[in-house]
Amino acid sequence: MKRLQKLGAYLFLLLIGYVFLFPLLFMIMSSFKPEQVIFADLYSIRAILPVGDLTLDNYRQVFEKSDVLLYFRNSILITSATVILGLFVNSLLAFTLSRMRWSGRKYILAAVVALMIIPIEAIVVPLLLLVSKLPTIGWEQGGLVLMGSWLNSLEVQILPFVANSFFIFLFYQFFRDIPKDFDEAAELDGATPFQIYRHIIVPMSGPVFATVAILHFLLMWNQYIWPIMAVQGEDARPVMPGIQIFFGRQTSWGEIMAYASFVTLPVLAVFLAFQKKFVSSLAGAGIKG
């Protein structure tokens, strides 16, 4: 009876796993197949199996047609800069919100919560107008000059996304549950608020930092709408908008799959590397649903 139950459970899990894995497998397998084979395999299990004459042609095409390595570099720069700055900025605001007394604190907290429900799509247009008017500081002919606008740069993809109300809230919730006694003990030990943050709160908050880092990484790596609007040229283009190149008069699904597989690799790598930590930190950070 026990065994039968177990078997049933495994079958069920297998089914679920299949549902989730199917698109991923399909994408990866198709990236190694010529166009006709993809469509020929489409209605059989072969769609997700590495069968038939596999080829690297699609990948060759991807590297030829697009500057994918440049996009990759841009995405890595954008994502890592945003995540690192974000961990610092968001946790610091959450720290002051959860552990220090100052007037207006309640209103800022309310604003943070309220901002969580505003999707990026709702603010991209005003944001675009704003950044198009913001000058960058450049170096020309031996002096500092104000130049052009923020458009077509890396920073236009970084700075608007550093502060994030959802992440502030995650930090806030986590910090709020750390007993105040630690702060007070440290205060008596002569620590300044920043030292309390740095030496007491941050080291005790590993799980929430891990959670936010991963979520922020995903958010940034998968940026699509904003770079399409704010970046026209190739120089500052990240990976996701790069896929547009392959949708043209003759769309090659094999190449699209190859491109998609290639840019998904880092996400998979991060996920697999941190899988255990991520799951436990989701539980630890009290995220539900």
């Binding site: 007993p179 003990a185 440290a186 007491i200």
Partner: peptide, 8 residues
């Protein structure tokens, strides 16, 4: 402190 507040 009652909770000792030792830094874990």
């Amino acid at each position: 402190f009652q909770s000792y507040a030792l830094y874990p």
